[in-house]
């Protein structure tokens, strides 16, 4: 008499069963092959709750929400394969490293912690991200860094090593967003259009140049000066260390800086009834 509602059926090809977990000291290894995200993430949370410091996920193939909502600065997750949507969403402290590509929504509304993606990543990375670090080795999609924001001690940092599409840093309200354009698979320009549209806080650094038409009207375009490079240096060092890139090569091209022209872009839009 079991009635399974339509909306709760697993996606084709996935099994709703607990994955195989091997615990070796402080490290848990989970075989994610074919496992539905719900059971996979339950297993991850269970391992972390039981005091394991590091969870290694093997054979990940698009499972969603890996590391979503997890907390604890001393926790690590390693993902081998392709991480699915909304990885590290709402994450507060842990480190997630992906040896492969990641899909959309990495670091969505993330609070603290670190995400390293050794491949390309999709759209809407770091949406509303309030803190932590997100490093992507390769190319990224549309609307990356949208509405990133800073608050007191929380200053999010995102570095994208390859190229980006439209709406990079749209509505940005805080933090540091960096685009390097190195080692890209794409023959497109460094970044698409609508760059920083509606931006009212934070700073965007681009390795190379942009045309004014690519930018939203709320941003000003500047050459990055020595102070900027001094501020960028630790960020770039972290990137270089994560991916084994030479800092000198990163710094071999001048950087462009984009700043919002107002913290209140719509302050004069209204009149009172």
């Amino acid at each position: 008499m079991a009635v399974t509602s339509e909306t709760r059926k697993p996606l084709e090809g996935y099994v709703q069963a607990d994955p195989e977990v091997t615990i070796d000291g402080n490290v848990a290894t989970i075989d994610a092959r074919g496992i539905y995200y719900k059971q996979l993430n339950e297993a991850v949370r269970r391992c972390l709750a039981e005091g394991v410091d590091k969870v290694v996920l093997q054979d990940v193939n698009g499972q969603r929400y890996i590391g979503t909502g997890i907390r604890g600065a001393d926790k690590h997750i390693e993902v081998f394969g392709t991480a699915g949507q909304d990885m590290a969403m709402f994450m507060d402290g842990p480190t997630v490293e992906v040896f492969g590509n990641a899909q959309d929504g990495v670091g969505n509304t993330m609070n603290a912690g670190k995400v390293i993606v050794h491949g390309d990543a999709g759209d809407v990375l770091g949406y509303g991200m309030r803190g932590g670090t997100l490093l992507v080795r390769g190319d990224v999609g549309y609307r990356v860094g949208i509405h990133m924001k800073a608050y007191e001690g929380h200053v999010p940092v995102m570095v994208c090593g390859g190229k980006a599409r439209d709406f990079f840093g749209e509505y940005m309200a805080g933090g540091t967003l960096v685009l390097l354009g190195m080692g890209s698979n794409s023959d497109r320009p460094l970044v698409g259009g609508y760059l920083g549209t509606g931006m009212h806080g934070g700073v965007i650094y681009l390795r190379g140049e942009v045309e004014p038409w690519q930018c939203g009207k709320e941003v000003g375009i500047f050459e990055a000066d020595e102070d900027d490079l001094a501020r960028l240096r630790p960020v770039l060092e972290e990137y270089c260390e994560a991916f084994g890139v030479e800092l000198a090569e990163v710094l071999s091209v001048p950087f462009t800086k984009l700043l919002p022209t107002s913290h209140r872009p719509y302050g004069k839009l209204y009149t009172y009834v």
Binding site: H147, Y151, E152, G174, G198, H263, R264
Partner: peptide
């Protein structure tokens, strides 16, 4: 969790 004095913009 946003800075003082800047507009809080909900897209």
């Amino acid at each position: 969790m946003i800075p003082q004095g800047t507009d809080a913009i909900s897209p």
